[in-house]
Design a protein around this nucleic acid. Structure first.
Lengths: 217, 217
DNA sequence: ACCTGAACACCGTTCAAGT
DNA sequence: ACCTGAACACCGTTCAAGT
């Protein structure tokens, strides 16, 4: 099947390797044959993303407290994107990220509502989490790209000399960022801000820990 | 000058219009002439970004309290990116965002340190703000892109039917997001989380407002 | 030092023509 | 219904050749 071959090509060699000619060569047919089957490169990409989306099954949300479940549902999107970076990057390029993650996003929305957020609040919280996640994903990918070394973040920060900032901070910025833990911190900050003032949100900073009210964990 | 023409081309027609042949035609020279001057398309793009970066002057940071100044410095990056979206998008594509915003980022780092953050904390806070901002920027741009209507966020959310989520939330997600205010909320959440526990950070939720301690504003 | 045309190896896409 | 070659309009890039 054409779409499966395209999906495999993207997953193994990245979105840059997906051309109609290359795909046709892999399949052993003429380039124009592809067009008869999928119509278009854009339509091919959409079909490819759709196929991938339906392939990865439903996600499991962990946690007893609403806040924990929200965080878990959000981490599922992050993890899913990280473990299929080529397809996710392609979806990002064509602006079809929602198409790829819709089931996971619906689940996250449900958890936000279960945590007590009203319609509009839940929608805004979902969007804030998604936008933020997308930013951290791009940051997590960028490191391995083909950016010339001389103008990568590390090199640029190493060249900064400014009396307003400390050398220690500059050294820290010249090193590799721990994208994973940065994401975790930012996610918690955004979720807690969104859940602030909700009943049973269990923020936990200064509040009383209600203790284990569930059997497991 | 070749680079100026390229910069103007990107600013007026977007990064997609920047090709060696198109640029040569605009300048009234042969395509190969461009190569003699800039060597490469990648080098041309870098030179273009560098030129744009030095053109927009220093930023002004407003506010008396450290927290306000951090927020102001962060907003400067957001605003600068929004008002030059084509160049910023191009820099994003080639992974040279830091090259474009380095002066603004150094200023933000200085404000984070002035707010009391240690070396590593300031570096992490800066990265969190930058990554998050990048995500919201992409979201703010994506709306106007050439994504087929049938698979845009709005259409996809309008098609969701799930007992776990309310119709009101789905309606909200089928509408246009207010990216500006979403960014503002997320920014405040991340900055406040980073500044939590710092001396004189002035979080302001329940704390005592120290009042005006500066002569101006 | 500066510019040129010809050429190579790629793209996506259309279309009349084959079976 | 399915596949093909030829062709068009684009890319980035190299290189020997001109002035």
């Amino acid at each position: 099947m054409v779409i499966d071959a395209a999906l495999q090509l993207v997953e193994s060699e990245g979105s840059g390797a997906l051309s109609m000619r290359r795909l046709a060569a892999d399949l052993g047919v003429a380039t124009t044959t592809i067009y008869w089957h999928v119509g278009n490169r854009d339509e091919l990409v959409v079909a490819l993303i759709r196929r991938h989306a339906q392939r990865m099954g439903e996600s499991v949300v962990n946690g007893d407290h609403p806040r924990d479940r929200v965080l878990s549902a959000a981490r599922n999107i992050w993890t899913s994107a990280l473990s299929h970076r080529n397809v996710t990057a392609l979806a990002n390029q064509v602006g079809a990220t929602t198409l790829l993650h819709l089931p996971l996003e619906v689940t996250l929305l449900a958890e936000l509502q279960a945590a007590g957020l009203e319609d509009g609040e839940a929608a805004d919280a979902l969007r804030a989490i998604l936008f933020c996640t997308a930013g951290f994903l791009v940051a997590a990918w960028r490191d391995e790209e083909r950016v010339p070394v001389e103008l990568q973040r590390r090199a640029l920060w190493a060249s900064v000399r400014d009396p307003r900032v400390s050398d220690g901070a500059l050294d820290a910025l010249a090193g590799e960022p721990d994208t994973q833990s940065l994401f975790e911190t930012a996610l918690v900050a955004i979720v807690d801000a969104a859940l602030a003032g909700c009943s049973g949100s269990g923020r936990g900073d200064g509040g009383v820990d209600p203790g284990g009210d569930g059997p497991d964990r």
